[in-house]
Amino acid sequence: MKTKVKILFPFSLLIALVLVFPVLIMFFSSFQGTDGGIGISNYTEIFKNNYYRKAIMNSLYISLIAAVIGEILSILGAWAISRLSEKTQNTFLTLFNMAASFAGIPLAFSLIILFGNSGILKAIATASHLSFLGAFNVYSLPGLILAYTFFEVPLGIMFLFPPIKEINSDWKEASQVLGANNWFFLKKIIVPLILPNIIETFIILFANAMGTYETMYALTGNNVVSIPIVIGALTNGSLDANIPLACALSTIFAAIMMLLVALGNRLTRRSR
């Protein structure tokens, strides 16, 4: 019993200090008004002010599209990897695991070098007079969605590969032995088996895009507003810093995510 306390106490203390307490403080501070009073003024401000509403809408819009594209490509990618030899599978999975670490500033920077205003494609377009080559504006919503694809696809593959691999090896053989055709196999076996994973992965991709700050900040700065960008601007100690307002926005964010996870759990349980 004593060793149990010795082992679990430092762990619980650390989780409390850097996760539980900050989240609780964030929640309580969100009810602290600019005049020092306590109330929901931060929340009414967020829902009345067009700037904050726009941030929430942008976040939802970018994340939804990035998650849909990411989901489709990662289903294809996970299926493709599951057909390769085991050694190649491990190599690809390790590399995709690392792709998450390349996200953020390095990713935004390399996209700016390729598509940016003084980037390579612009240089080639000017020299070759093929202006369509340099037409893509990377500092925009489509640019952000493109950038998000670079980490959403590897992340989706990491989550979808294990279930898809299982289906590939066992179920296909069994259903062929029993005389099922490919369409039957897809509709009656693959889809019901894998649907919970697809929903789960979609929620993770959506949540991951919603919380992305670094890539967006490096690519579009404060030009495109989103929940993370506004939180960053309100927290970073500049003149317009307003931490209680940032806490309110963070609380809204965490609430959306918890709702989504709860919804996902319900959906996946039902289809299981």
Partner: peptide, 19 residues
């Protein structure tokens, strides 16, 4: 394991700054 998705760095940091 789902905490990083529900409470990403940019959300956690507001609480850390405040605390």
């Amino acid at each position: 394991t789902i905490i990083p998705f529900t409470i990403p760095g940019i959300v956690l940091v507001t609480g850390l700054v405040q605390l």
